[in-house]
C-alpha cells in the first residue's frame, strides 16, 4: 500500500533544481508528482517517479544527498469536501500529516493526494477501515 518517494536535499543555489531534473530526464526517469519545501538556506525536493529504485541509485551515484521515504497515495473524491473527509478521519484517529501534495493525474472521478504520515502503518490501517481507497505503488508509478 505504501509507495516510495525520493527526497533530495538541495542548497538554495541557482541551477540546483535543474541539475536534479536534467539528470533524471537523461536517465529516462519520468517525474509523476513533486513538491518543494524550502527555507532561505535550503530546500527538500520530494519526487514520485516512474522508477524510484533507479532514480535513487542515479542521484546517489551523482553525489546528491538523497533519501527514500514511504508515503501513501489516497484517492480523493473530486468534489467539495472530498479532502476534508479524509483529514477528518485522520484527525479522529490522531494521525498527524507531516505533509501532503497533489498528484497531477486522476483516476476516474478521483484526484490523488500523496500523504506523508508520522505513523504510516496506522494510517494505512485506519484509512482502509474508513473505506478510503489507497492507490498501489505499481499503479502510481505507471500512471
Amino acid at each position: 500500500m505504501k509507495l516510495q518517494q525520493i527526497s533530495v536535499f538541495i542548497e538554495n543555489q541557482s541551477g540546483r533544481l535543474f541539475d536534479v531534473t536534467s539528470l533524471l530526464g537523461k536517465n529516462d526517469i519520468n517525474i509523476r508528482a513533486l513538491s518543494l519545501a524550502d527555507t532561505s538556506d535550503f530546500g527538500i525536493l520530494r519526487l514520485i517517479v516512474n522508477n524510484p529504485e533507479k532514480a535513487y541509485t542515479i542521484l546517489k551515484e551523482n553525489e546528491f544527498t538523497v533519501g527514500r521515504t514511504d508515503v501513501i497515495a489516497v484517492e480523493v473524491p473530486d468534489k467539495p469536501g472530498g479532502l476534508a473527509a479524509i483529514l477528518g478521519a485522520l484527525s479522529k484517529h490522531s494521525i498527524n500529516v507531516e505533509y501532503m501534495y497533489a498528484f497531477v493525474e486522476r483516476t476516474g472521478d478521483c484526484a490523488i493526494m500523496i500523504f506523508r504520515f508520522d505513523e504510516t502503518d496506522k494510517a494505512v490501517e485506519k484509512l482502509t477501515e474508513e473505506g478510503f481507497n489507497l492507490v498501489l505503488g505499481t499503479k502510481i508509478y505507471g500512471i
Partner: peptide, 9 residues
C-alpha cells in the same frame, strides 16, 4: 550524511 534521513524542513 550520504543518505538523507530527514524529509521535512
Amino acid at each position: 550524511t550520504e543518505g538523507l534521513m530527514i524529509d521535512t524542513i
